[in-house]
């Protein structure tokens, strides 16, 4: 019956350390971008998102026990990311196609 493997307390602390490090990185990246090296917005946001995704992955894998969970639980977790993807893709599809076709009606 027991689907759960074991994650040691040591690993938890290591992950915690990693998360703190990444938080420092997020804050650091903000100051570097603001004070030292102004990046185009898309790059800056991209970097921030990348760090955020890494944090999420660490939390989900270790703190939420996904690494040692049953296949079924992993499937459910993965499906939530598929759904996130659906949300982003369709929403961004709208933003992408907002100006199409250029207005030609009586209003313009």
């Amino acid at each position: 019956m027991n689907d759960h493997g074991h994650i040691s307390v040591r690993t938890y602390w290591n992950v915690f350390g990693g998360l703190m490090l990444l938080m420092g990185l997020t804050i650091g990246a903000y100051y570097i971008e603001k004070l030292v090296l102004p990046l185009p917005e898309i790059v800056a946001v991209g970097i921030a998102l990348l760090i955020a995704f890494t944090k999420t992955a660490l939390i989900v894998t270790f703190f939420m026990h996904l690494k040692v969970s049953s296949r079924l639980a992993q499937l459910f977790a993965a499906s939530s990311f598929v759904w996130l993807l659906i949300m982003f893709m369709i929403t961004m599809g709208d933003y992408f196609a907002r100006g199409w076709p250029a207005q030609t009606g009586p209003l313009s």
């Binding site: 759904w83 659906i86 369709i90 599809g93 709208d94 933003y95 992408f96 196609a97 907002r98 100006g99 199409w100 076709p101």
Partner: peptide
């Protein structure tokens, strides 16, 4: 049911192509 939400936004400024889909 997850793929149709934009039918509540036909008259917003949503892209007409999104509306179509």
């Amino acid at each position: 049911g997850f793929l149709v939400w934009g039918h509540h936004m036909f008259v917003s400024s949503q892209s007409v192509y999104s509306g179509l889909v």
